[in-house]
Structure formats: structure tokens, C-alpha cells
């Protein structure tokens, strides 16, 4: 998977949520830890469903986690 124009705040949100581990977030969203690593590195753009799952795991809206680069 190549780079994506969608940037995210997953890393910051994890640390703001009691230093949640990548594995804990992965388990909460029913994905592998490798996917969380790829998302944080901006190498993978999630599906809409996964974006909502991640936002729900942090208790915030999707727009608080993801945004279009430069917007």
C-alpha cells in the first residue's frame, strides 16, 4: 500500500487515551496491529467502516481522527 493523502491523529489520540497500545486499539477495531502501524505511518487509507470504528474506540467523530492532507 502506498502513501495516502488522508492524514490522521491516531497516534496522538492513543497517547491521550491512557497511552493505549497499538494492539489494544487493533483489538478494539478488530484489525491486526500491522494495520494500525500502517495507518499511523500514513501508508494505508482505511475503509469508511474502519474509520468509524477507530473514531468510536476513541469516543470522537471521524473528522477528529482523519482529515484530507492540506485541508
Amino acid at each position: 500500500m502506498s502513501g495516502t493523502p488522508i492524514v490522521n491523529e491516531i497516534r496522538r489520540l492513543r497517547f491521550e487515551h491512557g497511552e493505549m497500545t497499538q494492539q489494544a486499539l487493533a483489538d478494539a477495531c478488530k484489525v491486526t496491529r500491522q494495520t494500525i502501524i500502517a495507518l499511523e505511518a500514513g501508508r494505508y487509507a482505511p475503509s469508511l467502516e474502519l474509520a468509524f470504528r477507530i473514531a468510536r474506540a476513541f469516543g470522537v467523530g471521524v473528522e477528529d481522527v482523519f482529515r484530507w492532507e492540506g485541508a
Binding site: 500500500m1 487493533a26 478488530k30 484489525v31 491486526t32 496491529r33 500491522q34 494495520t35 500502517a38 474502519l50
Partner: peptide, 13 residues
């Protein structure tokens, strides 16, 4: 243990 075997990124790859 309890990890999902494959997810949407695996399927995309």
C-alpha cells in the same frame, strides 16, 4: 490469541 486472522488491509494487499 484472539487476534483477527486477516483484516481489510490484508484483503486489499
Amino acid at each position: 490469541y484472539r487476534e483477527v486472522p486477516e483484516d481489510e488491509r490484508d484483503r486489499a494487499i
